[in-house]
Amino acid sequence: MKILIIRLTSMGDIIHSMCVLQFIKEALPNISIHWLVDEIFSDILKNNPDIDTIHSISLRKKKGLISRIKEIKIKTKELSNENFDLIIDMQGLLKTAIISYMINGKKAGFDKDSIRESIASLFYDKKITVPYKENIYKRNLKLINDSLCISKKELPLENINKYLFFSEKAKKRASELLSTKGKKIVFIPAASTGERVISISMYRKMIKLLPGKKFLTWGNKAEKETSQNIAENLEDTILLPKIDLDTLKALISACDLVIGPDTGPSNIPFAVKTPSITIYWDKAKNSNKRNTVNNQNNNSFSFSDLNDFDENIIVKKANILLSN
């Protein structure tokens, strides 16, 4: 059997979706899994042994509707030649539903009551019902199970194996960047929206109270400036150079703890089995709580506003995780 999974964006949602791969291969070891992703996120999928082929489409980088339509036509024509037995739209948007419709093969996706853009369900041959507010990991597994007629119904979050992988080159680079004795804590100051931002002063308060070496990541000029301001004159705090996504996966896998807001890279620790703390503001968490994971190693804390933030709560939990 040969299937195509469609999940184009974004980093966090792609990582959430990838956890199902190991369960597909466990139930159907001979299945061939292809994945269609926007090219700017393709590195997150690379080196995963459960994915047979990664197909990239350039939509985020294209400017204008006409150029994007042309890109979709070219890619869907190419994919139609693959003769997929089933195409599963894990994104559930009108855009991805149309893309799935343009590729030869039967289509599966969420039903109209299980997605925000309900019209997307019209393009699927098989429609799966999953409450929209259900935990995202359980939603994804339910969609896959029912689409592929796999009998396993429960998602044992505690038994999920590592499912993000990286190259040997990235592993070596991460080792060089973290080449220091003692505990290593990686901070991810970046946030995709303003309501998820943690202030510079909050980071500095946490860093001053935490043991070991602290490493600050960044991805663009604004994030670099933020990380520089956080690290300024703080002992045992290192501003990392800009690194690619492959190296970021390896870096997070090799450190002892990750702390950051609800942003794409903050989903990597769960997938590489690294302890983490994710900080939410109530407004952000209420709108995104179905994406959260709380277990022994991956924890989320919510505060009502900047005045409510208590660095001691984070530091206390961090010390517990670092001592395990």
Rank of each mutant, 00 (worst) to 15 (best):
N291M: 06
D308R: 02
S287F: 02
K285V: 09
S304N: 11
P275T: 07
Q296L: 14
I313H: 11
K273Y: 08
N288H: 12
F309E: 07
N299S: 11
D305P: 03
N297A: 06
E311M: 04
K273T: 10
S302Y: 01
P275L: 09
I314D: 10
Q296P: 00
S300Q: 05
N299I: 15
T278V: 15
F303M: 07
N297L: 13
K285H: 15
F301N: 11
K316V: 03
K285Q: 15
D282A: 13
N312F: 09
N307W: 03
P275Y: 05
S300K: 00
K283Q: 12
I279P: 01
E311H: 11
T274Y: 05
F301T: 10
P275S: 12
K285F: 15
S287R: 10
S300M: 00
Q296I: 12
K316C: 11
V293H: 01
Y280K: 05
V315I: 12
S304A: 08
K316F: 11
T278D: 03
I277R: 05
S300V: 06
N291V: 00
L306G: 00
S304W: 00
F309P: 05
S287P: 00
W281P: 03
P275K: 05
K316W: 01
D310K: 15
Y280L: 05
F303V: 04
N286Y: 10
K283F: 12
N297T: 04
D308V: 01
Q296H: 12
N295Q: 08
D305Q: 06
R290E: 13
N297G: 02
P275C: 07
Y280T: 05
Q296S: 14
K289D: 10
S300A: 08
E311C: 14
V315T: 10
N288Q: 09
N312Q: 13
T274W: 03
T274V: 07
K285A: 12
V315F: 06
S302E: 14
N298F: 13
I279L: 13
N299G: 00
N307T: 10
N312P: 00
T274G: 05
T274A: 04
I279Q: 02
R290P: 00
N307K: 13
S276A: 14
L306D: 09
I314P: 06
D310M: 12
D305S: 14
K273P: 03
K285R: 15
D305C: 13
F301I: 14
N294Y: 15
T278N: 03
K283L: 14
K316Y: 10
S304M: 06
N291L: 04
D310H: 13
V293Y: 02
N288R: 11
S304V: 10
A284K: 04
N298I: 08
I277G: 10
D310I: 09
N312Y: 06
D282P: 00
D305F: 03
K285W: 14
K285E: 15
D282V: 02
N299D: 07
T274P: 03
V293A: 02
N295S: 10
N298W: 07
W281I: 02
F309L: 12
I277P: 04
P275M: 07
